[in-house]
Amino acid sequence: MSELVSLSLPEKTFILHGIDVNFRNDGRSRLDCRPIELQTKIMDQVNGSAKLKIDDTEILVGVKVEEDTPDENSPSEGKLEFFVDCSANANPIFEGKGGDELATEISDALSLAYKDVFDLTELCILPSKKCWKLYVDVLILACGGNLFDAVAAAVKAALYSTEIPQVKDAAVDGVEADIFVSDDIFNSVKLDVKNAPLLISLCKIGDNYVVDPTPEEEVCSSATVVVAVMPNGRTSGGLKTGYGSLMVETWRKAIQIAKKVGVQLNNEIMKALEEEEKLGPNRALFGFL
């Protein structure tokens, strides 16, 4: 990952020593997360949306639904596609194609996490004729560390708020299939996200792992383990970023920690999302204002 801040050696040593005694720069212990601000359904022209803010990190996710034809190999499954865009708003080095590398890294991690875990059969309308294709578009507006976790949490929230139009009638006329969508925009199906995983990145600093790293902490670390954790505590994927290498035992330890943190974070996010939904359509919208 591109380094967004530069620290001198004494500054790095200070952070490292702090983490050794389980006391980080901002007062957190190693496995504490920063507060998360989350809001869903903030845009009018998409099927689902969410805005997430952790300290300086700001993520906007829009989900659009389109009609498509299923793949021949999986005729009864819909499609799910992730696209990540690192806006130059976050950092001038992302200008032009500068953010593409990081964007691909994140969207690959998302695809890996959701592969074979997310139930795509609910997106099927007519097997091998028609299905829904979900475009999950992530826009990174500001970077304050911990992009993987923030993006995955925002994606889950956006998918939770996604409403797919209700299909009234579907008919096959020769080769072509026609579907008729309900005219009432409130007549829609909610997406099931009870299996949707979250990404938990663990930053290895010294001999310890740190959860939800700040940009300063990310610079101090030689390797970061990213684990996709499902709500039931199972892991659906894992990858390592950074130049450092890890012992097998350390990997195992990382997965154990990620499981614990992931289940907890999942519960918190689902609780918050359900609470927000209870506020109903007349809740106050803040967005960026």
Partner: peptide
């Protein structure tokens, strides 16, 4: 130096 970029989900009417 300017950069004008439009979010892929910004359009209405099902256009991406």
């Amino acid at each position: 130096n300017c950069q004008y970029s439009t979010a892929v989900f910004s359009f209405g009417a099902g256009v991406r």
